[in-house]
Design a protein around this nucleic acid. Structure first.
Length: 928
RNA sequence: GCGGAUGUGUCUAAGUUGGAAUAGAUCUCGCUUUAAAAGCGGGUGCAGUAGUGCCUCGUGGGUUCGAGUCCCACCAUCCGUACCA
């Protein structure tokens, strides 16, 4: 038996693939392209199981598509700007660039060891000046189009990372990177007008084939709502406040207004009044609160009256103005009209501060009483107390009232979004410098495109506080490109999510200093957009929304023709592992508690429960170790077969063991010659040929849908079936076809082992570049399905009986085929069931046939059984002759299988008590 | 609270337009072997000395000749989200 040596074979092929550069691709206008992409990683220096899974799924699919004659773009690069490099510089005095480069080369080695079929010629790094030059290019183009702007505002500040964060990066009030609570700081920062694209970001979701889950998350994040702007004039003030509401129908129920405490007008209003002191202390209290604490639904709604009024735009009533922590300055006008009768939050506030409640919507079923209400009425009803709108259904009143406001020019219909503009300034060194110069005379001046890139300086000092860029005199001091006098550079760098917002286009045409555009349009138009993107769910509203924005923005710059960057998205599941868990405390054992087998807190014995791999639990597995022990193909096989790509994958020793066993066995099954070679073709060969084609067909269907686990499952089944065939003796031609089939089908999953087998089989081309196999559709007929199914059933039945009577060896088996009349009965019966399911009716018609009448007792039983579950009885059946011939043909298979004699008889030939029992497709089985 | 999922014989999963409950793993028995490993064969919801019957796809209803699949209600778990006016 041939023994497979994964280490030797895998490295042999990895070297050959690389030396001959076989995965290099270029534009071939006549060939259909396919773009497979996994998110390029941050070069942390160490590959984890998640990476292994991500890349293996992508590589498997890329290889499959490549073998199906697509021109496959499958690149890899590194998202190499980011804080860990800078932190290493601060903590250990290591140069961030050197640190990054050495991590990249280490990580690349690990990736190559998996056998991934990347076109390494297209490798890109964010920290390459050739690359980030175009980050700056995009920034300046956006600045020119007024999509980039500078603004003073409250921003999320992470203390541990000592930088500003975008809203998307501070979800739930926590820093996306370090999980620290973020604070609010008032700073001048650069923003990108992602809001301009809000509507298209929403509608574009209909153009892509993404998991609904991700689409929903993006929809919620963008948060479109249709409503009305209503102008409320202010008392003793020329201005009016233009508030946004989705409930214009409740306009007549407004009894107070609430402003966000940081609204800039309020300072003026309270100045010198008796409210000033109280307001100031309230303001200080609120502003100290973290934004996400403040907007927590459970937190008490606090506020105060500030002595100011506005005027109801229609009734002209005086409306008191309050400030409260529950109003967000950044959304809408930073102020709301409060309708306590019909909004629960307003209701609670009104009750607390004794503000009147005015009912303007009356429910259909009962009557509301403002004094007795215990909660707001938020459902549908009829308008009251609303002048000419009384009697209208409230939903139609929204439109009617908005129209009136429009007529009076004191309001209009509008759309509002939760999405905020993207704050991209970061007070950190290891990122792309923002190409802006501040000149005392000319103000804010963008660096001319010809002067790009603005390089990151090397003469910086890394201290624990402040932006290191500020310490570089050579960087800060420059001259104004317009007037030539000395000027200062912007020292903030860009959010690293900028880099990953266009890298997928860069792979099509990697950046070069010679070009003054990021990539050439015709090349990107050929390769783009990404056909299949594979990544984690964690980027649902970070990278995946930014990249969509950039795609639309750069399309509008005329750089390419795509509306959406990623056509299909697969969000891969997590890698888990069984881990000690205390069911009483609902808690997993931490890394330092693993030596005990009971819970540290309550002493309960741990049970094993699956949990995601994490360093703090100490349950991580290093992919390097797996590859060293079992080889890359086994690791790949395990990852692809362990679970479908979307669901969680449990790591287990048994699983990887099985994978390794399978790879080794299959190798020897494929290359060891069969012991018996038959001269002539038999039905056994037809059977395996049929089965082979069925598997090719199934595998294709599964692979196309990216149901890789299904595909692998099919291949495993065929391998086991094929092995039986091989042991029974083979017919050369069919045998060779099976070998080729398995080798090809298995190649995207286990590329090294199959490449080796391919060579041993005498092929002199690379299997990686060979063509996929088509199945012979002509054998996949209904009739063949039926026949081979019949064989399966017979074998199962014989087995069952054999087990039941506890016989180890059999002397002979008789198969008795049903009488001719039963076949006639079946076809007649199925005809009738098309019309009626009534047993009496059917029997009546059937026994009119005098040939059948004599069997009426048996027929009644059969009909009853068939009607009980008609789906159980296949409508395709063979004629008595066909069935008899088929059983005669398959006789040798059954004889071999049970190592006994088999005789095929017809019911009419024998006189036996059991003869009545045979049915078409269900012969009577008698074994001795 | 809102939104999105998920629930299938011990485990991990398939299960298309409703039409015979599918794989794989685990465990276990037998064969093989000096032994181990590997391999091969059988079993793995229940009952059964004949190809069968019955149970079971989170729970309870409903539609249907027929439901894992469709409809309604509920339960459990996971994920996302957070006063967005």
């Amino acid at each position: 038996m041939s023994v497979y040596n994964p280490q030797k074979v895998e490295q042999k092929w990895q070297k050959r693939w690389e030396n001959e550069n076989i995965f290099k691709v270029k534009v071939k206008k006549k060939k259909k392209k396919f773009y497979v992409l996994e998110m390029y990683p941050y070069p942390s220096g160490e590959l984890h199981m998640g990476h292994l899974r991500n890349y293996t799924i992508g590589d498997c699919y890329a290889r499959y598509k490549r073998m199906n004659n697509y021109n496959v773009l499958y690149p890899m690069g590194y998202d190499s700007f980011g804080m860990p490099a800078e932190n290493a510089a601060i903590d250990k005095g290591i140069n961030p660039e050197e640190w990054t480069n050495s991590n990249i080369s280490f990580m690349k080695k690990q990736q190559k060891r998996i056998g991934l079929s990347y076109d390494w010629n297209r490798e890109i790094y964010s920290h390459d000046p050739k690359y980030y030059k175009f980050d700056q290019y995009f920034f300046i183009k956006m600045y020119e189009k007024e999509l980039a702007y500078r603004q003073e505002s409250y921003v999320n500040w992470c203390n541990t990372c000592s930088t500003v964060l975008a809203n998307e990066q501070a979800q739930g009030g926590k820093c996306w990177r370090c999980n620290n609570e973020v604070e609010q700081k008032f700073l001048t920062q650069w923003f990108l007008k992602i809001k301009n694209y809000a509507d298209e970001l929403l509608s574009g979701l209909d153009l892509v084939d993404w998991p609904d889950k991700v689409k929903v998350m993006q929809k919620n994040w963008i948060g479109r709502s249709e409503g009305t702007i209503i102008k409320f004039p202010l008392e003793d003030d020329d201005r009016s406040i233009d508030i946004f509401t989705t409930r214009a129908d409740t306009l007549y129920g407004v009894t107070f207004m609430v402003f966000a405490p940081e609204h800039p007008w309020i300072q003026d209003w309270v100045k010198g009044t008796k409210y000033e002191e109280k307001y100031n202390s309230f303001y200080n209290e609120v502003i100290k609160q973290k934004k996400f604490e403040r907007t927590d639904i459970d937190i008490e709604k606090k506020g105060l009256f500030i002595g100011k009024y506005c005027i109801h735009p229609i009734t002209k009533e005086k409306i008191p103005i309050y400030v409260s922590n529950f109003v967000i300055y950044e959304y809408g006008a930073g102020a709301i009209m409060a309708v306590p009768a019909h909004d629960q939050r307003d209701f609670e506030f009104a009750k607390k501060y004794n503000i009147p409640i005015k009912v303007v919507i009356q429910p259909h079923e009962y009557e509301l009483n403002a004094e007795k209400m215990s909660r707001a009425f938020e459902n549908q009803g009829i308008l009251i107390n609303s002048e000419e709108f009384n009697g209208l259904e409230n939903l139609s009143a929204i439109k009617a009232i908005t129209e009136k406001l429009e007529k009076l020019r004191i309001g209009y219909a509008t759309i509002n979004y939760k999405l905020r503009d993207w704050g991209i300034s970061r007070q950190r060194y290891w990122g792309c410098p923002i190409p802006i110069i501040y000149c005392e005379k000319c103000g804010i001046v963008p660096v001319p495109i010809n002067d790009l890139p603005v390089l990151l300086p090397k003469d910086v000092k890394f201290t624990k506080s402040g932006n290191p860029l500020v310490t570089s005199e050579s960087f800060i001091n420059t001259t104004c490109p317009i007037c030539g006098i000395s000027a200062k550079r912007e020292t903030d760098t860009m959010d690293t999510f900028i880099d990953s917002s266009w890298y997928f286009f860069s792979f099509c045409d990697p950046p070069s200093h010679e070009l003054d555009i990021p990539y050439r349009k015709d090349i990107v138009n050929y390769w783009g957009n990404v056909d299949q993107y594979i990544g984690g769910i964690e980027h649902a509203i970070l990278h995946l929304i930014y990249a969509r924005f950039f795609t639309k923005m750069s399309r509008d710059l005329g750089l390419h023709d795509f509306d959406e960057p990623f056509q299909k998205l697969l969000t891969q599941g997590m890698i888990n592992k069984a881990h000690p868990y205390c069911s009483k405390c609902d808690r997993f054992a931490m890394k330092n508690e693993l030596d005990s087998d009971s819970c540290k807190l309550c002493g309960t014995n741990y049970i094993l429960k699956s949990v995601k791999m994490s360093k703090s639990y100490g349950n991580t597995v290093n992919p390097d170790d797996i590859i060293k022990k079992y080889g890359a193909d086994s690791a790949r096989f395990f990852v692809l077969f362990g679970a479908s790509p979307e669901s969680g994958l449990d790591f287990s020793e048994e699983g990887i063991g099985f994978a390794s066993k399978f790879i080794r066995n299959t190798y020897s099954i494929l290359i060891d010659p069969p012991e018996i070679i038959r001269e002539n073709k038999t039905i056994r060969d037809d059977l395996i040929y049929y089965y082979m084609n069925k598997i090719i067909n199934n595998t294709n269907n599964s692979m196309q849908k990216l149901d890789i686990r299904d595909a692998v499952n099919n291949i495993i089944q065929f391998c086991s079936e094929f092995n039986k065939y091989k042991n029974e003796g083979v017919y050369d031609e069919i045998y060779n076809q099976c070998i080729t089939t398995i080798t090809i089908l298995l190649h995207p999953i286990a590329p090294h082992m199959t490449e080796e087998v391919w060579e041993i089989l005498g092929n002199d081309n690379f299997l990686s570049l060979a063509s996929w196999i088509d199945c012979d559709q002509s054998v996949l007929t209904e009739e063949n399905n039926f026949k081979w199914n019949l064989l399966d059933n017979i074998i199962t039945d014989i087995n069952n009986i054999k087990n039941l009577i506890k016989k180890d060896s059999l002397e002979n088996i008789s198969l008795i085929i049903a009488d001719d009349w039963k076949y006639r009965l079946y076809s007649r019966l199925f005809e009738l069931t098309e019309k009626t399911m009534n047993q009496g009716e059917i029997m009546g018609i059937l026994i009119k046939d005098t040939n059948l009448k004599i069997y009426s007792k048996i027929i009644a039983q059969i009909v009853s059984r068939v009607l009980k579950n008609i789906g159980k009885f296949s409508k395709i059946s063979l004629s008595p002759e066909e069935e008899l011939n088929f059983f005669k043909e398959i006789k040798p298979i059954i004889e071999k299988k049970f190592n006994t004699k088999v005789e095929i008889l017809s019911e009419s030939d024998i006189k036996d008590i059991k003869k009545d029992k045979a049915l078409p497709g269900k012969p009577t089985i008698i074994i001795h």
